[in-house]
């Protein structure tokens, strides 16, 4: 069942230097309980996509157009109050830097309790017990003692667990996880990914997992969308994407990472750098870095074509 449907979403920032088309006409949907991976390099618009759906883009400078249908609600037409309720109850988000999302002057017990009071219909005397349950659920040892700790007392991995506990306190149907493990060490990352897997099985939460780490995406996602300069360039099931990439950018990303499972002598980098949103190339935004670029790629922007079986690609070669 489709939980979220996004149509021709555009999020443009009107800045002093010009218009930044951070998200420029993307269509996609998320089904109940699935994990959708969103990959792409820094600045390509991954976070802005998620923040737009969550109603967290400041306006001005942001201007959002298109359609967002969540659980049959037209999100862009909701009042700020309705939006806040939706954000607390149905969708939630966790971020890369857990510390910046936590309030440094409140204990973690206070912060989780606050989230529970807001989102659950529960008697005040039961709040503490539920708070402890949530901490237990996300694998924080000795939760009774941790309640009175301040965020800075906790390690990065523990802070991220607290944020996950807060995000889950409303049992959301959709969780945006924006680089949830990027700032963490690999052994701690493994713990957090394991926790997310357990939670999606137990609560059937759909996850939009944003990451630039192809390993994390391969391990967690069912379906993947690759983003470049504000647009989607490829969408595929996780197996198709990794074993048979169709867009040259996807192929380039896969060839440029060193890998433990298949060591190679020499990496094959994608040449050049990511374009500036204020000075995008003509035609396909990827053409200056594309080894296969044709004349048409320099002139006309390709559309995201559907190839059947959930596969879409935007490339003149396909």
């Amino acid at each position: 069942m489709t939980l979220l449907e996004v149509k021709d979403l555009k999020t443009h920032f009107h800045t002093a230097k010009g218009i930044v088309p951070a998200v420029d006409g993307v269509d996609f949907s998320v089904c109940q309980g699935e994990t959708l991976g969103l990959v792409g390099e820094s600045g390509c618009g991954k976070s802005v996509t998620a923040l737009s759906i969550m109603g967290l883009i400041p306006s001005p400078p942001g201007k959002i157009t298109g359609g967002i249908l969540f659980d049959n609600l037209d999100v862009l037409f909701l009042s700020e109050k309705e939006m806040r309720r939706l954000r607390g109850n149905e969708m939630a988000m966790i971020f890369q830097e857990p510390m910046s999302a936590l309030n440094p002057v409140l204990t973690i017990g206070q912060q989780i309790a606050e989230a529970i009071r807001l989102h659950q219909d529960i008697k005040e005397r039961d709040v503490e017990e539920r708070t402890i349950d949530m901490l237990q659920l996300v694998g924080i040892p000795m939760p009774e003692r941790r309640l009175r700790d301040y965020p800075h007392h906790l390690s990065g991995g523990m802070q991220q667990r607290v944020l996950i506990a807060m995000a889950l306190s409303c049992y959301p149907k959709l969780l945006f996880a924006d680089e949830p493990s990027t700032a963490l060490d690999v052994t701690i990352q493994a713990q957090i990914l394991e926790l997310l897997k357990k939670l999606r099985t137990d609560f059937k939460t759909a996850i939009v997992l944003i990451s630039h780490d192809l390993g994390v995406i391969a391990e967690m996602a069912n379906r993947v969308i690759v983003m470049y300069a504000g647009k989607f360039v490829e969408e595929a099931s996780v197996n198709d994407l990794f074993h048979n990439p169709l867009h040259p950018y996807t192929e380039g990303l896969l060839l440029s990472v060193p890998r433990l499972d298949k060591p190679i002598k020499r990496l094959q980098p994608i040449t050049g750098t990511v374009p500036d949103f204020l000075d995008l190339p003509t035609g396909c935004s990827f053409h200056p870095r594309c080894p296969y670029a044709l004349d048409i790629c320099r002139q006309k922007s390709p559309i995201l074509k559907s190839l059947g079986a959930g596969r879409r690609v935007s490339c003149w070669l396909r």
Binding site: P141, S155, G157, M158, D185, V186, T187, I188, Q189, A190, Q191, L193, E194, D213, L214, G215, V216, I217, A218, E219, V238, N239, F242, H243, L254, V257, R259, L260, D261
Partner: peptide
């Protein structure tokens, strides 16, 4: 444990992860 924790860019990879408990 460190090596087994590295997510591999291959959805078909079958590995047993050693997930370390606790922190450094």
């Amino acid at each position: 444990a460190l090596l087994s924790s590295v997510p591999l860019p291959d959805p078909a990879a079958k590995r047993k992860k050693v997930i370390l408990q606790g922190n450094v």
